[in-house]
Design a protein around this nucleic acid. Structure first.
Lengths: 237, 237
DNA sequence: ATGCTGCTGTCAGATTATGTCAGGAGGCTG
DNA sequence: CAGCCTCCTGACATAATCTGACAGCAGCAT
């Protein structure tokens, strides 16, 4: 019973990647020949699924597909739970609470039979031993990021020099032990990372920065990619 | 290409009728034998579609199928996304894919206005530099855990001694760089942790272990707590 | 108890699906 | 423009699967 399974899988793959997916990539994931993928796509289109395929690009699932996604699988519930447990441990207080609330909300919409897969998931996250406590209110920074607001910070250098900067925070990178604010730094006119445990005073300004955050994120990623000279590696996202 | 088409059609039929539909009715509509309908249903259920069939009644699409719209706060969406990104990076291949699928599914049932909070979340997870590749099929171990199955493994000690053990896996602890299987070890008659990168051969046995996994998890946690002599600290969960 | 209905097993033959090879067409990049 | 990637289609032999028929068990409603 492979083909029948595959059709639903193809749908899910297309839903998963928001960018175009090449038939070749799907062929590899489904462990099937490219030709077969073409046949499957053709079959789906024949059933009215809006899949757009463009030469040189790949396939995208059209907007208007109203078929709701299948309920979570056991694997997915484990993934969700493990992820939220990790956030519960590693996130700032507010995020940690949000993670726990999310578990409850997801649990609430699950059919009875699936609930154990979420709540009894055997995947747990080890506690962190050396807990770095950052003095900063990371939750406030997150909301500044969401609202594209400029922020004024006091920052301690690697060699203990203090600077005061106005930055445009666009994201946070979570490392194992530390968190870095990704931001455009007005002082350096360049992207910089700021370790949250080296940030002193934080002042969320009322000003919003003039560029779109999404665009800045893309620029930042492009720069990273260029630095690493691994053009096709997805760097952070 | 009939069967593949039929599966999606069966779904549509079930979605159309709210009341139970008999297999016979479907067989007639699909111009196919009753036996085949049963097979199709079985196939769909195998793919996680919640179809309830009751003798004397007919089939109903379980409540779980239409994922109801999920309402989340911005914080919660950031938590979900960060968590799933972490799993995408750190989980085994299958779990990683499940994490991405989950994002897509949650995104699909989110009210329009909320979607950007999920997809444009600025929280990203740093890639792991020293990538420990475990030879083991962690996905298989996860399913053994879900099904409470005994597993026979070949394990390499800290001092390179090899042992063959039958264990009762009850969970996995995710550390920064490694993953440990939590299990009751028949050889030692005690709970042990097994680093996945030290596990050689894995053999999922057909036998299920006699105790309930949830109970074992609790015992294990109690033991840990006792060891640490921090009675009220939540150790892992 | 009776009549539906779901569910499972088995089997042989018909139907489908698959990979491979070959070739065409369209978008993108340099 | 050339070169590359990608979508797309056709053909064919082989392998895999699907299907219907029949038989039998079990749960639900009346």
């Amino acid at each position: 019973m492979r083909r029948a399974d595959r059709l639903l899988q193809v749908l899910q793959i297309l839903r998963r990647h928001r960018r175009p997916v090449t038939g070749d990539a799907m062929a590899e994931e489904l462990e099937v020949s490219l030709r077969t993928v073409y046949r499957d796509i053709n079959s789906l289109v024949g059933q009215g699924v809006p899949i757009r395929g463009e030469a040189g690009i790949g396939y995208v699932l059209g907007e208007g597909y109203d078929m709701p996604p299948l309920m979570f699988t056991a694997d997915e519930l484990e993934a969700v739970m493990l992820g939220l447990r990790w956030v519960t441990r590693r996130g700032d207080g507010q995020l940690s609470r949000a993670a726990r609330d999310s578990v409850a909300k997801i649990g609430a919409v699950l059919p009875e039979g699936l609930r154990p897969f979420l709540y009894d998931a055997g995947l747990v996250v080890a506690p962190r031993d050396g807990r770095t406590v950052d003095a900063v209110d990371v939750a406030a920074l997150r909301s500044a990021i969401r609202e594209s607001r400029k922020v004024s910070i006091q920052y301690r250098d690697e060699i203990d020099r203090y600077t005061e900067r106005t930055i445009w925070p666009i994201g946070i990178v979570y490392y194992e032990a530390t968190r870095n604010i990704i931001a455009w730094c007005e002082l350096r006119t360049a992207f910089r990372h700021f370790r949250t445990d080296r940030i002193g005073q934080v002042d969320i300004l009322k000003d919003r920065y003039p560029k779109r955050r999404k665009a800045l994120l893309k620029e930042w990623q492009d720069e990273l990619r260029a630095d690493m000279e691994k053009p096709d590696l997805d760097v952070f996202l």
